Simulated assay, not measured.
Amino acid sequence: MAHRRSRRRRLQRYWNRPSKRVIRDRLNPLEAYTDDELFERYRFRQVSVVYLLYLIGGTLLESTRNNALPPMLQLFVCLRFFATGAYHKLIGDSLNVSESTVGRCCRSITEAILLVRKQFIVFPRDDEARKTKQEFIKIAGFPNTLGCVDGTFIRILAPTENEPDFVNRKGFHSLNVQMVCDAKFKFTSVCASWPGSVHDSRIWRESSLCRQFERGEHNGILLGDSGYPCKRFLMTPYLNPQTNAHQRFNASLCRTRVLIEQSFGILKRRFSCLQGILRTTPDQAVGYVVACVILHNLGIQTGDVMDRVDQPMDAFDETAHQVACNSPEGSHLRDYIAQTYFG
């Protein structure tokens, strides 16, 4: 009996002993890859990475632990996740860090990026608004346009709370993210906190940008599809065009509004995590989406851009939307624009 107890104690000491710490060799991607290779793997070149680290580095505290991950490598871990959307374990294996470290890096870097949101997601005003209107006129001749608005679905895992609210009209769990873009594929407004079952018109109606237009803070219009109500500041297509002017109005609006679809395509091609499923909570998924939009705009500012995604300029997808109620002011303004510019 005593022999068995002593043997049991030896086994317990063996299994309870601390595991040997493994120090992994971590390469600095800035030294290991060329600019083009960096762009393929992390969606940014060296100058942009250094600039981004300069913007957010002040909020990333250096750890006092031995062999801690420096802010530069934390940033590369997060960019790798955004670029691929892969499982944390795969990203950790490719960069010689643990799975839990990848999760912590993604969360901390995302929080740091969100702090600079107001520098990169800005709706045009004054001189910028005038430049934006001129750029839209060059594209399709649509007057007084400040942007194109639409929503896109971002897949997420089924949440544990309020799960039915996140099932969209296509039958999968998602966020419904509303964005506004300008003529250069830059996003000027983002509203990402709504579940997938919420209709586009409600997201727009309760957004801060809609209230700004209602208060008259912006002198111009937005272009949307038939899921939005036609207002004095939001133009939508004619569902049943009766005249040639109505048809030309719809064609011009379609050629202009396709910019928002192209912007969505560029964003999701650049950050593949938005094409697959964000395997996290809805709140964290919102942070990832907005962070990717900030990085998208930063890439346009620094010249690190993806190729444009061409979208067909054919009929609007009316079957996918409920038709919102138009206001008399909006309908009158739409008729005026159709007769004046396209008659």
Rank of each mutant, 00 (worst) to 15 (best):
R4M: 14
R4F: 14
S6I: 12
Y14E: 13
W15V: 12
N16S: 06
S19H: 00
R21E: 00
L27H: 13
L27S: 13
N28L: 11
L30T: 05
T34G: 15
T34W: 00
T34F: 00
D35G: 06
L38P: 10
L38Q: 10
R41C: 01
R41T: 01
Q46A: 12
Y54G: 12
I56G: 12
G58Q: 01
L61N: 03
L61R: 04
N67H: 00
P70N: 08
L79C: 06
R80T: 04
R80S: 09
R80M: 08
A83H: 07
T84S: 13
G85C: 03
L90T: 15
I91W: 05
E99I: 06
R104F: 09
C106F: 15
R107Y: 06
A112G: 04
V122H: 08
F123R: 02
D127K: 04
R130G: 02
F142V: 05
V149W: 10
V149P: 10
D150A: 11
G151M: 08
G151H: 04
I154K: 02
R155L: 14
R155N: 14
R155C: 13
I156M: 04
N162H: 11
P164V: 06
F166R: 05
H173W: 05
N176H: 12
C181F: 08
K184Y: 04
F185T: 08
S189Y: 15
C191V: 15
A192N: 10
S193V: 11
H199N: 11
S201M: 02
R202A: 02
R211C: 10
F213L: 12
H218R: 06
L222S: 08
L223D: 04
D225W: 04
C230L: 00
C230M: 01
F233M: 00
L234P: 00
N240G: 02
Q242T: 14
Q242N: 12
T243N: 05
T243Q: 05
A245V: 01
H246W: 09
Q247G: 03
Q247H: 12
F249G: 07
F249R: 05
C254R: 11
R255P: 14
G265H: 14
F271K: 01
F271S: 11
T280A: 10
D283Y: 13
D283W: 12
G287L: 00
V289C: 12
V289Q: 09
I294R: 02
N297A: 02
L298H: 02
Q301L: 15
D304L: 05
D307C: 03
R308H: 15
D314A: 06
A315Q: 14
T319F: 13
Q322F: 11
V323W: 00
C325S: 09
N326T: 03
S327N: 07
P328C: 12
G330P: 03
I337M: 06
Q339E: 15
T340F: 03
Y341R: 03
G343S: 07
